[in-house]
């Protein structure tokens, strides 16, 4: 088992290495470089005449005159050794400062969404599979189609509209005004949780629809297995048969797709965050792309991907524990 974990960990490192190169390429893609944009941003409108020499100086200050592979080395080296993601010119401070607590809010949103998705999808899908062809089953099929067809950001807009017109209150933001600047307290945490409900529902929307489909399909497969009939033939009570045999196996595909779900949530997060006004990484990512603040964008893209890769790693290992057939083949 240890060898299996080490193998997977090595895979994680290799993936992250290649991902970091891709992220770096994306950071370098926009026309012009950091120095140009820095100079433009800093001096435009101030009347100062920026010469080519000034830009050259800025370039030297930031080490931008070096070849690309050296700059990549500096960038990734700073991240690994000092956890330093570079400078944000839009905010004129370090990337770490800009990201700050947005990271934890992002993770809080992710966590709430995942919990909500699994709490909803697994029992509902199992119920639908057991009561196959019932009205509830058909209703769920319709819902899962809708879940796939109605993009999350449209759902967010819809919920905004409903909350404003019917409840006369906004669902945006992560904190009520009175807690915005307040120090952390139980009340503030509760306030945060209250505000996390809507984003979590919006983000869990399509993930839940998708998971219901997968779990239901696996469950239907498993229900027809001979092992279930064999367990019934042993006189095991029906509820125990269902829980111990098909349900136990229907959990496996859920575990194996945790990374995929995180990927999906992070993919949808920026736009939902923009609509709902959530101060987290996705919204900042859009802003930094629009400003071409590429160190911030790169840092966020790297972080989001890092969480996905870590989740993949965790789900691989969890699956090996859950399914005895896996560790035998590869460990």
């Amino acid at each position: 088992m240890l060898r299996f974990i080490l193998q997977r960990f090595f895979g994680l490192m290799v993936t992250m290495f290649f991902v970091s190169i891709m992220v770096f390429v994306i950071m370098e893609l926009p026309p012009g470089d950091y120095a140009d944009r820095y100079a433009f941003r800093k001096y435009s409108g101030t009347g100062v005449n920026v010469t080519q020499g000034d830009i050259e100086n800025i370039r030297r200050d930031f080490g931008l005159h070096k070849p690309a592979w050296q700059r990549y080395g500096d960038w990734i080296g700073g991240i690994i050794t000092k956890f330093d993601f570079g400078e944000s010119f839009a905010f004129e401070t370090s990337v770490n400062n800009v990201i700050g607590k947005r990271l934890w809010l992002t993770l809080a949103i992710l966590f709430c969404t995942l919990v909500l998705t699994y709490l909803l999808a697994i029992p509902i899908a199992i119920y639908a599979a057991i009561r196959r062809h019932s009205i509830a089953d058909y209703a769920l099929t319709v819902f899962s189609y809708l879940g796939l067809a109605l993009p999350n950001f449209l759902l967010a807009l819809l919920l905004l509209y409903v909350s404003v017109t019917i409840f006369d209150s906004s669902v945006g933001g992560l904190f009520s005004p009175q807690y915005e600047k307040a120090a952390w307290s139980l009340a503030k945490l509760l306030d945060l949780l209250k505000h996390l409900v809507v984003p979590a529902i919006v983000l869990a929307w399509s993930a839940t629809a998708l998971q219901i489909q997968t779990v239901r399909a696996t469950m239907l497969d498993e229900l027809n297995k001979l092992s279930v009939t064999a367990a019934r033939a042993r006189g095991i009570p029906e509820w125990k048969v269902l829980l111990k045999y098909p349900t136990r196996l229907a959990i496996n595909p859920v575990v194996s797709t945790i990374g995929f779900d995180v990927n999906r949530i992070f993919s949808e997060l920026p736009i939902v965050a923009l609509v709902l006004g959530l101060p987290e990484l996705g919204e900042l990512l859009i802003q930094s792309y629009l400003d071409l603040d590429m160190y911030v964008a790169g840092a966020i893209l790297l972080m989001l991907t890092f969480f996905i890769v870590v989740m993949n790693f965790i789900s691989d290992i969890a699956l090996a524990f859950l399914d005895p057939r896996i560790s035998l083949q590869e460990g």
């Binding site: 001979l226 092992s227 009939t229 064999a230 367990a231 033939a233 111990k244 136990r248 399914d323 005895p324």
Partner: peptide, 24 residues
């Protein structure tokens, strides 16, 4: 019926692999 099943009348099947659950 549940007491009969397995208790008084037991059953074995054609596919031994499929009649066991792979995860127990």
């Amino acid at each position: 019926i549940r007491k009969l099943r397995g208790g008084e009348i037991a059953m074995i099947f054609q596919e031994p692999m499929a009649s066991f659950s792979p995860v127990y």
